[in-house]
């Protein structure tokens, strides 16, 4: 039987209360949202917090809405909420495509956007999605709010910029026009972590050249879950087969996958090339209004 080590438990009903409870319980305290990453790690003693501050009561952080020229996603939005969101479906198909392959529907009822990003698993699909879209994170503490680019949010495997006494409250994504986006993932079995995954958005100008592009990579040791060199290579050019092949090859070369039970390094690099190509092609098709 797997049971976590003992810990103190406190419930927060507001963000301010959560921050206060974190301060009161000190460095050994952790926030728990859906708990579907943290509780399994606690069972295995990979994590051993002294105290859990339960933020499931913060239903005011469960929202997806258009806010000016951005989409704002509350940190307590469940995966199921992302998958079912009409706002996200209208602007970014990448979200539903990524969510459909995150765990299973029951886990998605519980796991949250904020929890997934703060868990900072190197294979987290949403980290790749938000990296591709160049989202920003809103982090609050007792002294106020700060905004961090999602590409700067993760400082390493299982590490983020969220410090002691801080809480991720919102993620924001710019709304773009003439855009298509897509997510591609290869997994060993339904609901597993990715062997490799790639997401993209493509914005085309009237001449069909790439006005802007974003790439996201999960599970393959890509710095900041992306490959900015490949994005730079594509920007301003027509999205030809050659351009896509060059960008895909660059992603495969620059990422640093680890050999593990999911596959050897050369296989994962190969997948990156294939998946980046597919994600770019489908994104571009969607940007042109094709059904792909």
């Amino acid at each position: 039987m797997q049971v976590p080590a003992p810990f103190e438990y406190a419930r927060a009903s507001t963000v301010d209360e959560a921050i206060e409870l974190l301060g009161r319980h000190g460095a050994g305290a952790r926030l728990v949202a859906g708990g579907h990453s943290l509780l399994p790690m606690m069972k295995l003693r990979l994590a051993r917090p002294d105290a859990l501050v339960d933020i499931n009561g913060l239903s005011d952080l469960d929202y997806i809405r258009v806010d000016g020229d951005e989409i704002a996603i509350g940190a307590m939005t469940r995966h199921a909420g992302v998958l079912g969101s009409a706002v996200l479906a209208e602007h970014y198909r990448i979200f539903a495509e990524a969510e459909r392959v995150i765990a299973d529907p029951i886990v998605r009822n519980r796991g949250t956007v904020g929890g997934s990003l703060c868990q900072a698993d190197p294979a987290e699909d949403l980290s790749a999605v938000f990296a591709a879209l160049r989202g920003t994170a809103v982090v609050r503490s007792a002294s106020g709010s700060r905004t961090v680019a999602l590409r700067e949010f993760h400082t390493g495997p299982y590490e983020t910029v969220v410090g002691e006494g801080e809480i991720l409250v919102e993620v924001r994504v710019p709304i773009r026009t003439h855009l298509g986006s897509a997510y591609e993932k290869v997994e060993r079995r339904a609901g597993d972590w990715a062997i490799a995954a790639a997401g993209a958005f493509v914005q085309l100008d009237d001449a069909g050249a790439v006005r802007d592009v974003g790439l996201g990579l999960a599970a393959v040791g890509a710095e900041h879950y992306t490959c900015e060199e490949a994005e730079d290579l594509l920007r301003g050019r027509p999205l030809s087969d050659e351009a896509i092949a060059e960008a895909a090859a660059l992603c495969a070369q620059r990422c640093q996958p680890q050999a593990d039970q999911r596959g050897p390094v050369d296989y994962k690099r190969h997948l990156v090339g294939v998946l980046v190509g597919r994600a770019l092609r489908r994104s571009a098709g969607r940007a042109r209004g094709e059904e792909v």
Binding site: G35, D54, I106, V107, N109, R110
Partner: peptide
């Protein structure tokens, strides 16, 4: 009313 996996929910969370 929402399906959850009770091996990964604390009893105190159901309070």
């Amino acid at each position: 009313g929402v399906p959850v996996k009770s091996c990964t929910v604390l009893a105190v969370m159901a309070d």
